[in-house]
Design a protein around this nucleic acid. Structure first.
Lengths: 369, 369
DNA sequence: ACAATCTGCTAAAACGCTTGATCAAAATTG
DNA sequence: CAATTTTGATCAAGCGTTTTAGCAGATTGT
């Protein structure tokens, strides 16, 4: 190599593979600056087009062009470093996989986070302690804006100590002995909605098959059932309420008990139970909703919408839980009153409740999904 | 300020709120260094306990203690900045929520990523173009190690241009016109497994109700069905194969056609179809598996395991898809031969196929989940 | 015509961490 | 005991940004 390398014009040479420098290491702001013949500061100002920055039209264009030419992408890591705070929100779930529900929580959280310029960092712990600790550590190390700690079914939860090192919101669970922010489904309201569906059809004797296992849902839905009856001026008959294991088997087996009750309608603790109940009823030669109107709970799309007839139910607002969790975390929503925010469970009417038993088949309540 | 500020003893003063500095801004390495009376370099060496770094036992302990005292957490952002590469893996999904399946992909990916010290950045695009572009951009800006691009059902997919700016792997989809790395379920193998379940029970005339809509699954499963028959020395009878819409309704309505076929067993394109089929069969007074053995496909836990009787099916390996995707991305696995890796679909036997129709009720194949 | 103002841009210090080069002191050698 | 090696720890540069302060030249006001 001879010394006079600067013989060539110092004009912008056809630098880099003309477009998309895919193989090479990422293009930095400095390279853009050099390419455009300006300082990095200028590039930064253009990139973020700061309102009060005074940049000449020509320069701006030159920078923008160079950016396009080089395929520059800002480095979020560096950006976060200097700004001190990252745009991450952590989501710790105890069962991403076990259930379709978790997906909805993630979805809601991710949408809402995105809306505010944040991205989701997810970790699955499959309920195991050390994994959970690791997950939280990792998130803290990434300086997340905060953490959503979610469970796949509504329940009380212990708050992992590390969570206190950052902002956090419990999603689908709550802490009985602290006033941590939490978002949970409004079980009582849901129970009322479920019962109301049947009441609106004119049913007066409505059974409620509750779960055998203790849970906020168990108590809440029962209370909702009672409240709905009361509002309708119907006396609560304890005889119409009994327990079964909350799955298909349980529902199937509950049929015998149910038929002793002399009711025209039944509210099942969940959709799976209703699914089993369907089988049992059909086996008895009974038809739904003519012989027995049925509503479930959970709105498990895969089953509820496609049973024969499609099952009326009440939806668990998982999407909303995730979204509300993020809003609470970011302070977009303020918790009113209690630190536990309750989200309504919207009713979903399908054919399993038929038409109004009083006004006949022309009821306007029937809907198909 | 007078000049003699160093009057106070330079000994470690009781700095900071004794423990867990929750309110204040995060503790940095420099604060630890000051606290322990060493340089940041030393702290760094201790934190990462570098093998070849020579640190005195005393110093090490002092640093470690200070770290604990102050509640120091390394800043992953800064760490990544200097090292150039982040420990992120992006997961772009077209439908986190619509289906329970996506959850499994996330789960598998997250477990595997974690295993290699990576964390998952998830983004849901709900199939819409701009969201997808944004998601990918965001991931590129975070300098992810690579991106998993996943779809909720197995299908050909177009590769978003931006993906080429980093390493990526298609999950549950593939690019017909490029040799991009991809992981998909082995539909053919699955079809064979499904058919084999029935063959093992001694069935010879087996119907296959395929989907009406075109998909890799449609062709693959059919081919698997044919291969299985062939291996068993049974001639393929096109009359035994017909199409139905792949949901409960479709299955229900397919019963009529099915019963014209004079078969003892049926392989349904998916579980939902099988679910409808159950209803139809029962309504005809037929019982499963005595009058008709049934296998489905997908192993949708919510339904398959809890139908009456529990449905034999073939599982879509979503968890494995996610995990294999990550391995492929990180180069842990090398694709053998084709750039499209096929994952086996394991059979899941339940009671819907009953006992061997030839050897009677003592078959060892029956299993309950 | 000269100060005051405005315009367009740059220098340089952070941000929290890693790491190769150094360096002083202590331990080992011949 | 001087020369060498080892040990223990520090310096300082750098990762890719943002941002404050500031500087030169152009434009205005009087």
């Amino acid at each position: 190599m001879t010394s006079e390398e600067s013989l060539t014009e110092p004009e912008v040479n056809p630098l880099h593979p003309p477009m998309t420098p895919r193989t090479s290491h990422p293009v930095t702001m400095r390279e853009v600056a050099e390419g455009a013949g300006v300082s990095v500061a200028t590039v930064s100002l253009v990139v973020n087009n700061k309102k009060d920055a005074r940049i000449g039209a020509g320069t701006r264009k030159r920078v923008l062009d160079t950016i396009r030419e080089l395929g520059y992408r800002p480095n979020a890591l560096a950006k976060n470093l200097v700004s001190g705070s990252s745009r991450f929100i952590g989501l710790v779930a105890d069962a991403i996989a076990t259930t379709p529900f978790a997906g909805q929580i993630i979805h809601g959280a991710q949408d809402e986070a995105w809306k505010h310029g944040f991205v989701l960092l997810v970790a699955n712990t499959e309920g195991n302690e050390p994994a959970e600790k690791d997950a939280i550590s990792m998130m803290l190390e990434h300086k997340v804006r905060g953490i959503l700690y979610s469970t796949w079914f509504h329940r009380p939860a212990e708050i992992p100590a590390a969570l206190h090192e950052t902002d956090f919101v419990l999603v689908n669970c709550f802490s009985p002995d602290s006033d941590a922010l939490a978002v949970v489904p409004d079980e009582v309201h849901g129970g009322r909605e479920a019962t109301d569906i049947l009441l609106r059809k004119g049913h007066r004797r409505i059974a409620f098959i509750n779960a055998t296992i203790p849970a906020p849902a168990k108590d809440g839905r029962l209370q909702g059932y009672r409240e709905a009856l009361e509002s309708a001026g119907i006396a609560f008959d304890p005889h119409l309420v009994f327990d079964a294991f909350p799955d298909q088997e349980g529902g199937y087996e509950a049929v015998e008990e149910l038929l002793k009750r002399d009711v025209t309608a039944v509210f099942c603790y969940n959709d799976r139970m209703a699914m089993g109940l369907y089988d049992g009823l059909k086996q008895q030669g009974l038809s739904i909703p003519e012989d027995m109107a049925v509503v479930g709970f959970d709105n498990q799309e895969v089953i509820a919408a496609h049973m024969r007839p499609p099952l009326s139910t009440v939806a668990l607002p998982h999407y909303e839980l995730g979204a509300a969790g993020v809003r609470l975390l970011l302070g977009v929503d303020e918790p009113a009153g209690s630190s536990v925010v309750k989200i309504e469970c919207p009713p979903v009417e399908r054919d399993s409740v038929g038409t109004n038993i009083l006004t006949g088949p022309r009821s306007r309540w029937t809907s198909t999904t």
